[in-house]
């Protein structure tokens, strides 16, 4: 099935198999490996992307149903070599261990701060409740979100 997708502001064409998820198409057809595949069942959030501005799990989006939508992945955040403030904050806070969950957390954090620039601890925990870190670095992740907020990041 030939698909025409709008990814990170660019029109992309991709060949997708039947029932293939947006996550698979992003990673395996379009070479965008930032969104990670860990559970394929919406539990871990490592595949988080924005679709028409909404934070969703790319593994739960049927690729064909993403046609005509504005898809933004973690690759859309950095400006070339210049890290996005949320990415910079994750590095500075040491919120990255193996890094597998990090892209998902960063996309979810960017979405949170867009809607709520000064979140409380409780609001951060709620907003990131769909993202799981198997290295259990949640303390540092929380710190990274506070750091990004303090930098007055808005998208």
């Amino acid at each position: 099935m030939r698909l025409r997708l709008q990814v990170n502001g660019t029109e992309r064409e991709a060949e997708a198999r039947e029932h293939e998820s947006l996550l698979t198409v992003l990673r395996e057809r379009l070479g965008l490996w930032g969104s990670k595949n860990a559970c394929e069942q919406g539990e871990c959030g490592s595949c988080s992307v924005l679709m028409d501005g909404d934070l969703v799990c790319a593994c739960l989006v049927l690729a064909g149903a993403a046609e005509g939508r504005d898809v933004r992945t973690v690759e859309d955040l950095a400006a070339g070599e210049h890290l996005h403030p949320v990415q910079r904050a994750f590095v500075d806070a040491g919120a990255v261990q193996c890094g597998f969950c990090t892209p998902g957390f960063i996309v979810a954090t960017a979405a949170l701060l867009r809607d709520n620039p000064e979140p409380s601890d409780a609001e951060i925990r709620e907003a990131l409740s769909g993202n799981i870190c198997r290295c259990t670095g949640y303390g540092k992740i929380l710190e990274a979100v506070h750091r990004s907020a303090a930098q007055g990041y808005t998208s």
């Binding site: 029932h19 998820s21 394929e40 069942q41 593994c59 739960l60 989006v61 049927l62 064909g64 149903a65």
Partner: peptide
């Protein structure tokens, strides 16, 4: 297919192989 949060799990794990999927989310 609406939000896909139930159906896609079944598709990802090969538990369902529907011949036609009609997205009604829009």
């Amino acid at each position: 297919l609406a939000g896909g949060t139930d159906l896609m799990v079944d598709l990802n794990f090969g538990r369902k192989r529907p011949e036609r999927v009609v997205a009604i989310d829009r």
